[in-house]
Design a binder for these strands. Structure first.
Lengths: 354, 354
DNA sequence: GTGAAAGCGCTAACAA
DNA sequence: TTGTTAGCGCTTTCAC
């Protein structure tokens, strides 16, 4: 049987309370140095370890933080887990990782999901789930910080957003400025669900530039899927001269599909991805990408959460982070392409949304 | 205030026990249908959610599983988290992810790490930590399943291993058979720490083939680090004609470093990595790799753990999984290379370890 | 400085 | 079929 606080107390002929006070380390000045020392020694010797379940029951604090992830497979999501874990490392919190679904689940499943008493929740890119969840569990109001880029964050929730709209405007403008006339957008079926901003920004810039939009639609977000889709598409429809991809996995897939068709990057087509995963850097022709500041996002979300835990009534915390357009070989100016007419550059100036 | 079981009971003029019985769902036949219905209705209406902390305190079961990871940054480790999460998805367990260190920490830190009452632990590739931990906390004996490839798994612990020794033998033999005369091994400084098998297997095969071993040592496991190391190495020492890399991240780094020097793969040098991360597939010249069966490993480890939780006295569970040598472009036979003399093929036959 | 007592929210014998 | 009772291991007033 595991040794309890009471065992330690009895062995020392002390009360539970005294032992508890010592072990809780709060520098309670009403404990004699001698007692403190004795308790610590004996507790250590007996191999006492506090039972956090019991402690949590009485204090109402579990020191558990839940990370709600939409997905875990892509390196992009894995990076989020990594950064959150690193962020929590020195703090007295353990990290619970939960895979929420893209689609809200049934109320009972959601209830289970929330059943663990956590001190706070970090929710990445799952606004729809979050909304459904809160609706189904109105009494469930632990501290939540939403993070990432998504469309409809619940009202009144702390949030660290990433402004993919402006970033996409910059990325697509870059493609326009580079001289693209046929600038396509590679999306998967449902990518307008978690995040419409990229979609909206792409259309806004093209519209302003007087260029016709062109979407290439894949059925999933996988690299392999994008590869096949793009390969077939360019075979059947010819090749655009620039391609903005909804995310980096799809961009890598597109890259492969294009090469499968013998199309040169960036000579025949410029490629820009989104998210900033490391893999884009290691291709033969490194991929330009709209990089999300994940580390900063996680750090800030951690701070927000901590503050919210400490003071549930603090004012709503909000931040919007800017992604960085990283221009690499895949969308560099090429010598044999004629420069963009200046007027087109002007037209591409799109006002910021809202 | 959150609504408790007692609130529900009082509202119905029932005892706590009755409500508890209904809500625990165990199809306790000694509850009238009417009561059951009333309780469920009122509980739902009042928004009752069980307090798992309290439940855990009395039952001794938290329904928490801890995943102890050595690292989280590399896609390889991220895949493990993904597969464990997917595995646990339909089960009534939540997943706690903890970053253990490559090096055992201080006893007090380790104590904190273990302080949460979890029903079981899945420990990936951190045998040294595990050993130190158990030594420091002899009273701490929750169900643990160790998984992955590492050197000195604690005695008496359930384990799902991956036999990287045999796999490496196969990989290096493949390079020998391909006609390599100067077959190098790319390692980082400490890679002999978590796992010596690759090292041992490499030397065994080279020895048996009468070929001189050659190590290229990097200071870390990063792609960038390996890139620079390999680039400088081949510039200063000329290029081996085959390279076995300790893992895929380093293989990708090597790939880039070699190309930086204008060295052709596989014409000038064959490359084989280890782990089987997806990225190896997407390079210009796809990388051969010794792929670990991660999904199978996680599934089996999950089963082992479940069984151990159900019966702490069950006999020790052990499994050793074989990796798969995936041969891709980076180590394919090349036409312009003379075939291996048959005798060399024979010599390369190395007996399995042990 | 230290102890007694109450109780966190729940489950599980045992009664009735 | 339902209720009573006794905790799980700990923290925290309030006494002394």
């Amino acid at each position: 049987m595991r040794v309890t606080l009471r065992d330690v107390a009895r062995r020392l002929n002390l009360s539970d309370a005294t032992v508890s006070r010592v072990l809780n380390g709060r520098d309670d000045p009403f404990i004699s140095e001698a007692t403190r020392r004795r308790v610590k020694a004996v507790a250590g010797e007996m191999g006492y370890r506090p039972n956090r379940t019991a402690r949590a029951l009485v204090t109402g604090r579990t020191h558990l933080i839940s990370l709600w992830m939409l997905d875990l497979y892509s390196p992009f999501y894995a990076q989020v887990v990594y950064h959150v874990a690193a962020q929590l490392r020195p703090l007295p919190y353990q990290m619970l990782v939960t895979l929420t679904d893209r689609d809200p689940r049934s109320p009972s499943e959601m209830r289970d999901l929330a059943s663990w008493e956590v001190d706070g929740i970090l929710a990445h890119e799952n606004a729809p789930f979050l909304n459904a969840f809160r609706e189904a569990n109105p009494s469930f109001r632990p501290p939540i910080v939403a993070m990432g880029s998504f469309s409809c964050p619940p009202e009144e929730i702390d949030r660290v957003g990433i402004d993919l709209y402006s970033g996409t405007v910059e990325a697509v403008r870059h493609l326009v400025a580079r001289g693209g006339r046929r600038i396509a957008y590679l999306v998967n079926d449902r990518s307008n669900f978690p995040d419409k901003h990229r979609h909206a920004a792409y259309h806004a810039v093209l519209g302003a530039a007087g260029l016709p939009p062109e979407s290439i639609v894949t059925s999933d977000q996988s690299r392999g899927g994008a590869r096949v889709t793009v390969r077939d598409y360019v075979r059947d429809h010819g090749c655009p001269d620039a391609l903005f991809c909804h995310n980096d996995d799809m961009a890598i897939g597109a890259y492969l599909g294009l090469r499968d068709q013998g199309i040169r990057i960036p000579d025949d087509v410029a490629l820009v991805g989104c998210d900033g995963i490391e893999d884009t850097e290691w291709l033969e022709c490194p991929l330009s990408t709209l990089a999300q500041p994940l580390e900063q996002m996680c750090a800030l979300a951690g701070e927000f959460l901590q503050r919210r835990i400490d003071d549930p009534n603090a004012p709503r915390q909000q931040a919007m982070l800017q992604p960085t357009l990283v221009i690499r070989e895949s969308s560099r100016e090429t010598a044999d392409r004629e420069p963009v007419p200046p007027v087109l550059r002007e037209e591409a100036a799109v006002g910021d949304r809202r």
